[in-house]
Design a protein around this nucleic acid. Structure first.
Length: 115
DNA sequence: TCGATATTTCCTGCTT
DNA sequence: TAAGCAGGAAATATCG
């Protein structure tokens, strides 16, 4: 598992632009699930609702991308919560590990993908 | 160098 | 009881 995360991290370091934001990193995992070993999945693609399947693995991947080995899901989720205020994400009440893209996020909608 | 922005880190309390 | 959620506060890194 650790090796898989390591490989994915290296892959990301190559394919992702330097200034990628967290929400873009999340979006890319969802758009290219085959490259990320089912870390996340769409709950409702049209509505932009998605779920973390392997929360700690996603956090580790994000940490590798930012060269931060102490990253974990608790810290990642705090950053996610700041997106509510900016309307990059919408809150999904009562469902753990479930988030929704907001009106200020782009590139995840069908027909928009492939940017 | 400085200010703005985007996290990161730590924390407390609540919920599932 | 562990894991996750919510949000305040302060610190830090990066960029223009």
């Amino acid at each position: 598992m650790q090796a898989v995360v390591c490989d994915l991290g290296m892959l990301f370091a190559v394919i992702a632009p330097r200034g990628t934001h967290l929400w873009e990193f999340i979006r890319d995992i969802l758009i290219h699930p085959e490259q990320h070993g089912g870390l996340m999945r769409w709950e409702d693609r049209r509505e932009g609702v998605f779920k973390f399947l392997k929360s700690e693995a996603v956090a580790q991947l994000w940490g590798q991308k930012k060269r931060n080995s102490s990253m974990n899901y608790e810290k990642l989720s705090r950053a996610m919560r700041y997106y509510y205020k900016r309307e990059i994400l919408d809150r999904v009440d009562g469902r753990r590990l479930v988030y929704k893209f907001g009106k200020n996020s782009t590139g995840w909608r069908l027909g928009e993908v492939g940017v």
